[in-house]
Write a protein that binds this DNA or RNA. Structure first.
Length: 431
RNA sequence: GACCCUGUCGUCUAGCCUGGUCCAGGACAAGAGCUUUUCAAGCUCUCGACACGGGUUCAAAUCCCGUCAGGGUCACCA
């Protein structure tokens, strides 16, 4: 039975790199019919926070990763001490006293060559002579990362350790500990790191780092996962859009790339727009409703659901982030449109009283108030006035929406409705 | 500095293992055009890469060596 784990430390939010590590572990476990274990590495009592645990769990759920088992290192301190004690008794570790009289347990590193077969990189060799003796249990009684990690991975019977590149240099230290404790050394696979546009590690300076930030910005989990997946793995048939479900079938760990990848928001935006375009409006509505409520655009209790879904449909092919909807479609929810000053200046500066009032009058008495009927009505009007359609389309759009961009004008009028459309047009008619 | 990892278009990659089908394919971005009612979407086209130097070979992006470059790690943090 294949068993993998994702082991975040609750000293911060779930990082985009952490999400990616979780993704590959989850993918591997699913593709192998194995178990995916979650372990919270909260040995650092001072820096670990409950709110971060909640945030991490929440983000993992949002991404769709279900774990089979959940552990907290803070509940396992005795196990680490017991294992350290064993090494002490076997003479493989020694005690070091601090000036204050506190005792730490240190593992004695003996010189030797250490070979690691990395599933992604092949063989890597290290020289233990270059490794210092390792602290196992700190003088405050808590275990060090490398020790707790080894004890847990062994006791939890983890078969494959899939983690970031930055852990490569921890690997020989851990291999030494597995051997000293008499445990089977697991398989290792080191994922390349994700870099920021500045070439260094992805950091807050180079963009949002928390998975939850991407959720807040309006990225769909499926799109984010698709992007993260593509950052260091490819299905091999030039496809850019692939679901994790499909990836589970095609995934092979040896096909994961070795090179670190730069995080490119533009491509994420494109992938997200593709998912948005094909998404079920009802699913988008579910994400959007709380935000619309928050903006007082609708109330959670009663809103016109078919109407909301229709409006979402109008916009979904134009969005690259779901949250853009809040700005682009605001005129459907506001009493009066919020005017873009430049748009107003460009299209509504001249007096269009005659045209607007004529159009409003005709709309008012239009029997066939459907998109096609509205368009016919409008085309006839401009023909009679002897002006180009676009000369009137743009001002009308700005008058109705406050913007120069948006869905087709006749659809806007249809969904805005007779009353609101006419009222907004008439507000520009000089008495 | 030491050790380790990595080097294909600006970015993500396919190809590399099993040399020839690659004067290197796809996608994003950028630029141009079509469509048009604006913005998107869609469609078409353009720009653009095997880090460098040796070697092996009839033949190298692919194999070997070196150089250079980038990154990571060197805590009683995880």
């Amino acid at each position: 039975m294949i068993r993998v784990r994702f082991a975040p430390s609750p000293t911060g939010n779930l990082h985009i790199g952490g999400g990616r590590t979780a993704l590959f572990n989850w993918l591997f476990s699913q593709s192998q019919g194995g178990k995916f274990i979650l372990r919270i590495e909260d040995t650092d009592q001072a820096r670990s926070k409950k709110e971060f645990i909640d945030e991490i769990l929440e983000s993992l759920k949002w991404l769709g990763f279900n774990w089979d088992e959940l552990y907290y290192q803070s509940e396992r301190f005795q196990r680490y001490r017991n294992q350290a004690q064993r090494l002490l008794e076997q003479g493989l570790a020694y005690i070091e006293k601090s000036p204050e009289g506190k005792e730490a347990i240190i593992y004695k590193v003996l010189p030797k060559k250490i070979q690691v077969q990395d599933l992604i990189r092949g063989e890597i060799e290290f020289d233990a002579a270059l490794i210092k003796d390792q602290v196992l249990i700190k003088s405050d009684g808590t275990p060090t990362y490398n020790f707790a990690c080894v004890v847990d991975d062994a006791e939890m019977e983890i078969t494959h350790i899939i983690r970031g590149d930055d852990h490569i240099s921890n690997t020989p230290k851990q291999v030494l500990l597995y051997e000293a404790l008499g445990f089977t050394v697991p398989n290792f696979a080191h994922l390349p790191l994700i870099m920021g546009v500045d070439g260094g590690r992805l950091s807050k300076r180079t963009g949002a780092t928390a998975i939850s930030d991407y959720r807040k910005m309006g990225y769909l989990p499926a799109a984010l996962l698709n992007y993260l997946l593509l950052l260091s793995w490819a299905p091999g048939d030039n496809r850019e859009l692939i679901s994790v479900q499909e990836a589970v079938r095609l995934f092979e760990i040896r096909n994961v790339n070795k090179t670190s990848a730069t995080f490119d928001l533009k491509k994420l935006d494109w992938i997200n727009s593709q998912y948005l375009k094909d998404a079920d409006p009802a699913a988008l509505a579910q994400e959007l409703i709380p935000l619309l409520v928050q903006k007082n655009y609708i109330t959670a209790e009663h809103y016109d659901r078919p109407y909301l879904l229709a409006i979402i449909k109008l916009f979904q092919a134009r969005l690259s982030r779901l949250n853009d909807f809040l700005d682009w479609a605001d005129f459907f929810f506001l009493e009066q449109p919020a005017f873009d000053p430049a748009a107003k200046e460009k299209y509504l500066a001249s007096d269009l009283s005659k045209e607007f009032s004529m159009f409003a009058t005709r709309l008012q008495s239009l029997d066939n108030f459907e998109v096609v009927g509205i368009e016919e009505c409008f085309r006839q009007l401009v023909a009679e006035l002897g002006i180009e359609a676009k000369k009137l389309i743009h001002p009308v759009r700005v008058a109705l929406t406050g913007k120069t961009i948006g869905p087709g004008l006749f659809e806007v009028i249809y969904y805005l409705g007779k009353e609101r459309s006419c009222q907004r047009l008439l507000s520009w008619v000089k008495k």
